[in-house]
Design a protein around this nucleic acid. Sequence first.
DNA 1: TATGTCAACGTGCTAT
DNA 2: ATAGCACGTTGACATA
Length: 251
Amino acid sequence: MDHHGRGDLGLNLKLGSELVDHRPRSITHVKRNYQTAMRPCFELPLLSLGLGLDGGGGQVDQGAVVKPGVKGRDGETSGQSTVSSFSNSGLSVMRERSYEDEDYNCFSNDGVRKKLRLKKDQAQVLEERFKQQSTLNPKQKQALARQLNLSPRQVEVWFQNRRARTKLKQTELDYEYLKKCCETLTEENRRLIKELKELKALKQAQPNCVKLPAATLSICPSCECVTTTPARGGDCPSKSKFFNSAPSAAY
DNA sequence: TATGTCAACGTGCTAT
DNA sequence: ATAGCACGTTGACATA
């Protein structure tokens, strides 16, 4: 039994059918989703037996083969299973995988994972589709996979990664925006502290100046002077800056 | 050769 | 129980 849910079916005779991706995504999923794991992960495109369903030799299923062990971050190997499918004269047989299969384009002969690069037109179609909808339902996934000659799993992974990239990009934009906000506010804070210092100094130098209720103080957005009333556009009251010119009102 | 990109994976979580 | 997604990671490949 492999971690992608393929059981050792031994001899498997079947009329050609469509690829369906029922694979659990990991060993954990296999453990958790035992029944799913027991289910064949796909319907093998199999056995023509001269019925003309398969032009001879059987067709190859990109998504149908278990990858050989891929080293995890700890160096442990996952994907231990070695079961795969192949066709022989129209007769598909499940056999022990020895990693020499060519029907999984992600692995080379020695079991080393090859980097699959999507073709330009494939990527273009996926990109166009992503613009329309960032998630696909199983039917859409299936159809798109067929259209692009990819496995549904590959389409699924592409969309997952694409969503992640979109999110990352958005996060970066948000970060830049917040950074700018932070810089602006820091600058504003520095300016206010300085202004406060000046006001305190002024107060000490002119103890007789009018003490205004704090609530009535405001900052003119254009010239940034302190006013006693909210400054409206165009009438900057710089004359009434800091304190009332009528010291008689003081205290 | 260092670094970036991206397909593919493992795992945790959630909705049904 | 199952399927699907987000997230973090890996590793092959491309490129500066």
